[in-house]
């Protein structure tokens, strides 16, 4: 038994995924500490979904949250911009700080927080408006642009950053819902970065996409992390290995282990992590 466990990571995960990242994306690539969660507990009604989660997320890097379905990784992600506030029966305890400030403090307006901590969802959810209006939505809402020219500029920059500009620049007035799945997801990313958030939360952004669209998004994540702090939930361990610098493994609502991505995939401390990344359960 033991011998087999040792065999499989080497054969399946380590070789294809890790070398590129582990080689040159070493600890030095991380920026400074951006968000810090301490002893986070969360309940849906009577049922506890998160148990004492402690996690640090660093700037200018990608932190991947992995774990089997229902392990609480998406729930935790949604704590980081207080998206769980929308759910009536959800109750959060613990301390989550963005640059040292408690985001659950009473004086913090979740609406303003969400402008700083953007989010991209599992299923592309463009608004039933034109491509332009989709991207211009948030800047307009927050009054970021004084006039139409500035707004045009913001829309263009966001679309360029999201790698969608070339494909849609001639049809900005067409509905965003008419784009392909991958394009829609990039539109949602453009929409999310249009307000220059400091943190971008991505909840399985590629799970509804084909491999080519996934590759495009992954490249995009790699570029975006130069100026952003990104936390991404993913079910694909290859994806976690490809895009992230740090990986956190969740299991049954607990954070089991968090470390350098290469360490998690090659030399995890915890047996459960080992089992999961080698595909023995989950």
């Amino acid at each position: 038994m033991e011998a087999k466990v040792e065999d499989r990571p080497a054969a399946r995960v380590e070789t294809p995924a890790v070398p590129k990242e582990s080689g040159d994306a070493a600890p030095a690539a991380l920026g400074e500490l951006k968000m810090k969660a301490k002893d986070v507990n969360l309940w849906y009604g009577q049922k506890q979904a998160l148990f004492d989660v402690n996690l640090e997320i660093f700037d200018q890097s990608v932190t991947a949250l992995i774990g089997p379905s229902g392990c609480g990784k998406s729930t935790f992600l949604r704590c980081l911009n207080r998206m769980n506030d929308v759910i009536d029966i959800c109750r959060v305890e613990g301390d989550i700080r963005l640059e040292g400030q408690d985001i659950y403090a009473p004086q913090v307006d979740p609406v303003q927080l969400r402008a700083r901590v953007g989010m991209v969802f599992q299923k592309p959810n463009p608004f039933p408006k034109s491509i332009y209006e989709n991207v211009a939505y948030a800047p307009r809402l927050h009054g970021l642009c004084a006039n139409k020219t500035e707004l045009d500029e913001v829309v263009e920059t966001s679309l360029i950053k999201a790698g969608l500009w070339e494909e849609v620049k001639d049809r900005l007035d067409q509905p965003g819902t008419g784009l392909s799945g991958g394009q829609q997801q990039r539109l949602c990313i453009a929409r999310a970065i249009s307000v220059n958030p400091e943190v971008l939360l991505m909840d399985e952004p590629c799970s509804a996409l084909d491999p080519i669209a996934t590759a495009t998004i992954e490249t995009l994540i790699d570029e975006l992390k130069e100026n952003l702090c990104i936390a991404i939930v993913t079910h694909s361990m290859q994806q976690a290995a490809r895009v992230s610098q740090r990986t956190a493994f969740f299991h049954l609502g607990k954070l089991v282990e968090v470390d350098e991505t290469s360490t998690i995939f090659t030399n995890p401390t915890d047996q459960r992590t080992q089992d999961y990344v080698t595909g023995r359960f989950g």
Binding site: M83, V86, A115, A138, L141, R191, A192
Partner: peptide, 9 residues
Amino acid sequence: REGSYGLGA
């Protein structure tokens, strides 16, 4: 709705 809340609306 979540998309919109996520943008700080």
